[in-house]
Design a protein around this nucleic acid. Sequence first.
DNA 1: ATACACAACGAGTTATTTCCCCTTTTTATA
DNA 2: TATAAAAAGGGGAAATAACTCGTTGTGTAT
Lengths: 209, 209
Amino acid sequence: MKIKVGIVDDHQLFLRSLSLMLNSSRNYKVVIEATNGQHLKDKIYAIPELPDIMLIDVSMPVMDGQSTAAWMNRDFPSIKLVALSMNDKDIFVINMIKAGCCAYLLKDISPKDFETALDDVSTKGFHNSDVCNARRLMKYEEGVVKLTENEKKFLQYACTDMTYKEIANLMFLSERTIDGYRASIFQKLNVETRVGMAMEAVRRELVRI
Amino acid sequence: MKIKVGIVDDHQLFLRSLSLMLNSSRNYKVVIEATNGQHLKDKIYAIPELPDIMLIDVSMPVMDGQSTAAWMNRDFPSIKLVALSMNDKDIFVINMIKAGCCAYLLKDISPKDFETALDDVSTKGFHNSDVCNARRLMKYEEGVVKLTENEKKFLQYACTDMTYKEIANLMFLSERTIDGYRASIFQKLNVETRVGMAMEAVRRELVRI
DNA sequence: ATACACAACGAGTTATTTCCCCTTTTTATA
DNA sequence: TATAAAAAGGGGAAATAACTCGTTGTGTAT
């Protein structure tokens, strides 16, 4: 009995060739292909047999991997979700695991290891690769600074050409309050200047650039 | 007569499945596969027949697409180079074209368009996709700010927690000279504060973060 | 009830940044 | 080679950022 697989990936060339590869193997059969989450939603109710395993790309247009996985997990809890990405950043791994994926595979994986991983998911229900190291992910979560809503808003403005006075006016707060946010964020990010704060915010992806 | 193709891509899963796809078609034959430029260099002298077209991924570890393309262009000028990337940023396109690629394809291309592009390269010697719009690329090049060597070095330091005084000491220059760089970059980037400069530098990828 | 954390606000001081006015030296090029 | 443009350096003043003291009110955990 072949394992039924679904694939969602915006890179059509990859999608089609991976599908071809899986179909040409003895153990797998691709039952659904989509180029993004919305596309998958539109198709999945019309196919004759549901997949056992759904391969989900992390970065996709229209509807990204996280939303897609979360939706699949809710509406099709029996389908095993596997994240497939070229990005090994902790935040992506955490988001996909939280969204219900039972494995996170990198695209530079060898076809052999790939099949091993899929077999693991199929038999054990999960597959632990190096990127899923629980200890490291926990440590990452600890390291995430917690900012209040106003601090976040202020930080966004602080990463622009505006002066603090202008930011205070924009937020309808006094310069003192603004200065309090600044001091608080300085401590949390362990920096000593506004530029340092801005760059650290970029590094930690706390601001939209 | 089949068109001989080579592939360099660090995503093994993509590399192997694309290879499988091309080999299973009537018109193409994959004669060399590598996971990065250095790997390609190590292998290419040992294969019986050279490719007609070399597909080169843009972002790879060890030796990236640009260096790989430049090297191929110098040592194997008769092989047609095709950039293959998921990134459509102008700077990547420009770099790969300058390095000698005669086409720049995105990985979200459909297998059909992909074959059309390869046929174009094989018969016409090039393929123009939307990302290669000459007018837009020229406009991009015009918009690139030109910084002097010292300005670049200063900008890198200016995007840290250091004060200008510290930067001046580090660069063995007076604070006045540093201030001259600052004023010059402010004008070129059209900003009014140090944070604005830093964020604009990030946006234009003028600094390593 | 009472401590506790924290968001919000305030005055005053120091440090840094930004801008204005310059001169001298080096580099490019007509 | 003359001339212009760019790089490097300088003093001082105004604006902005950063720090050090506070006070008040609000929610919340004990």
